[in-house]
Amino acid sequence: MTGFTPLASLIGGMMIGLSAVLLMLWEGRIAGISGIAGRLLPPYRDSAFLSRFGFVIGLVTAPIAMIAVGDVEVSQTVSSNIPLMLGAGLLVGFGSVWGNGCTSGHGVCGLSRLSTRSFVATGIFMTTAIITVFLIRHVIGA
C-alpha cells in the first residue's frame, strides 16, 4: 500500500509542467527525458550536448538537493531483483527511444500539444504497463 497524495502529486506535477514550459521558453526544446538522455550518447546531431548534460545533472542531484535543503524524506522502494531490473531497464531505454518519447515527452509535453502520436503512444504504454503489473501481481502472483 502507498498513501493517496493528491495534493503533493498535483503540486509536483505542476513543477514538472513548469520545467517543461521554461525549457521551451529558454531554448525551444521539448522536455522529454528519453530524448534528452538518449542524445547524450553519440552520434551527435546538434550542439545541445551541454544543455542536455546540465538537465540530466539537475535530475540526478534533485534528491540530494532536497535532502540537503529541507528536512524532507525521499522515499523510493526499488526492487532488488537484478535480472528483473536489467530487463526493465533495457525495455524502458529501447522502447522510449524507439517510440520517440516516454512519460514526459509523450505523456506530458505531447498531450499538452494535442499531438496525435503522443495520444497513441501514451495509450499504448499505459495499457502494456497495466497489463504487465496485472500479470505479475495477480496471475503469476509475485
Partner: peptide, 14 residues
C-alpha cells in the same frame, strides 16, 4: 515495449 519495462520495474527514464 516501454510500457512493459515500466510495469516490471516501476521506473521510467526521469
Amino acid at each position: 515495449l516501454f510500457g512493459i519495462g515500466w510495469g516490471l520495474g516501476g521506473f521510467c527514464p526521469g
